[in-house]
Structure formats: C-alpha cells, structure tokens
C-alpha cells in the first residue's frame, strides 16, 4: 500500500497542479468575461442596450405634429411638405418633452433659405434655385414667401 502511494505520487502531484490550474482558469474566466459576451456573437451583447440608451435630440416631425396642428397642416399642403420641422428649427426633443423648458431656434429666414436655395450648378436641375444677389435683393425672403408654405400664387 505504502509502496504503491510512493510510486504514484509523481503522477498525482502534476495532476493536482493541472486540476488546480484548470479550476483557476475557469474561475478567472467566469470572473472577467462579461455575462452577456457571446449572447449574439463575439462581443458583449449588453452593448446593444447601452447604445440604445443614448439620448434622442431630434424628436421627429410626427411628435411636433401632435401639438403644432396648424403649422403641420399649412406645411403639409405647401411646397415644403418634404422638409421636416427640425430641418429648419434644429433639434427640439427637449422642447417636445416640455415646451416651457426650451424654445427651438426661430431661424431668420434669409440665411436659412439661401442655405438650400442659393443657385449652384452642382445642384440637381429640378430643385428650385435663385441667385439671392439678383432675386429681390435687400428684402427678407419671408416678406414674400411664407416659410411654411413658400409658393406664391
């Protein structure tokens, strides 16, 4: 009995060390690999929710429509139907959540209009453009064109 132990101790010892090492590896691995790693693939699945949690700044036109019924209707019938409210008024999610807390930018017409409508041969031909230096100079665009429905009839 004694003799047999003595002969096999050189096998048991490395086996114990190996098992201890394996255990250590498993424990350390369980500790440092995040729980959601591998949920969808070779990355931390929880990132999806982390990225989703970032704040929204552009509320989207449908949200504006909920309160600004008149502007929405006027714009919807005019030539600026495809231009969303926040394309001109800037991000307004904070305003939409609580109108009193923040007022969206109320753009001064002329620079805003020129940003889209200034004559440029690189722009597609179908898009209505004017040379602002020649088209009614010295006047604000909004004196003749209503920003929300700009066509003159």
């Amino acid at each position: 009995m004694q003799g047999r132990w003595k002969d096999s101790i050189h096998l048991i010892r490395p086996a114990a060390v190996f098992l201890a090492g394996l255990l250590l590896f498993l424990v350390v691995r369980a500790y440092i690999v995040p729980p959601t790693f591998g949920q969808y693939g070779h990355y931390r699945g929880a990132v999806l929710d982390e990225v989703r949690a970032r704040p929204v700044k552009y509320a989207g036109q449908e949200t504006c429509a909920g309160c600004h019924v008149e502007e929405t209707e006027v714009k919807g019938k005019g030539k600026h139907a495809t231009v969303a409210c926040e394309a001109c008024h800037g991000p307004a999610a904070r305003h939409a959540d609580d109108p009193g807390s923040m007022r969206p930018m109320k753009p001064e017409g002329t620079a805003l209009c020129a940003g889209c409508h200034e004559m440029d041969t690189a722009k597609p031909k179908w898009f209505r453009q004017v040379n602002t230096k020649e088209h009614m100079p010295g006047m604000k665009c909004t004196e003749c064109h209503a920003a929300h429905s700009p066509a003159l009839h």
Partner: peptide, 23 residues
C-alpha cells in the same frame, strides 16, 4: 456612425434622414 441605433430601435428615423429636406 451607429445608424442612430438609439433612434431606429425606437421607431424613429436617423437624424440625417430626418433633417434631409428632399429625402
């Protein structure tokens, strides 16, 4: 670009598409 993942997963469009005047 995250394709505005925080928006598109809530039923909104991306900020760039929202602001594009000509779609």
């Amino acid at each position: 670009c995250t394709l505005c993942y925080h928006r598109i997963t809530k039923g909104l469009t991306t900020a760039c598409c929202e602001a594009c005047p000509t779609q």
